[in-house]
Amino acid sequence: MSVWSENSRAALLSVLILALALLAWELAIPAQHLATEMTEYERLMGGGSARAGIPAPSQVAVKAWEQLSNPFYDAGPNDKGIGIQIAYSLGRVLTGYGMAALIAIPLGFLIGMSPVAYKALNPFIQVLRPISPLAWMPLALFIIQDSEASAIFVIFICSIWPMLLNTAFGVSGVRADWVNVARTHELGSLRTALTVILPAAAPTIITGMRISIGIAWLVIVAAEMLVGGTGIGYYVWNEWNNLDLSSVIFSILLIGIVGMLLDSVFAVLQRRLTYAE
């Protein structure tokens, strides 16, 4: 019988796996020769080893410490702190996502309430939904003529569909009994929508919002690689051009962590709004 709870055993195992993986990675990177020990040719070829460019975890950790200890410095267009880059990305994601939510949730409500509207709009949604958001980029750049706004538009277009469909699905699936409760209590349509249909559909709507924020965070990296200038996606690409792989690996990790945080905000909301029947 273990004295440890299931959670603490799982946490211990996680730490163990991480430690082993980092150790294996560290050992797999051949020791770097000091530049002074190498010939001119070896130095030009990247240290004489094919894998010399891949940094060890210790090097990534050093880089991470360096970046995180001063995240908001701004030394010109090509040298900004990681905090500033993340802030740019989050700003774009939240702007595009917010606009999408403002349109998708009310529109999804109407579509969900009216079977005719649902059937009429469904073909458009089904065609537009599978389009890769980046495919809109040239058109967006041409029409909007502004790279910043185009990136936001791409976020908008990719996050609108899950929210729209989930809202419509959630609203149309509200149990007739609950609507009848509202009817027998003589509630007007606005109060019915706000006090019965919205809370009844809330878990489904939040699921849609959670899917959307995930997609938006995936897409922003690619979009920023294309439009350039600022943002975490641009940062990754810029560091690749600088052949600074420690920074690339560090920013990949950071993208994952920010995405996890965004998702967990919606997980909390979802838990709060979900009800058991």
Binding site: W178, N180, V181, R183, T184, H185, V196
Partner: peptide
Amino acid sequence: GPSLDRGVVFQNYSLLPWLTALGNVRF
């Protein structure tokens, strides 16, 4: 049409599951 003058108790209770018992009566 439906009216508050005719109260209905449904077989499946028709309580709003996201409200407490008090919340449902308050509704």
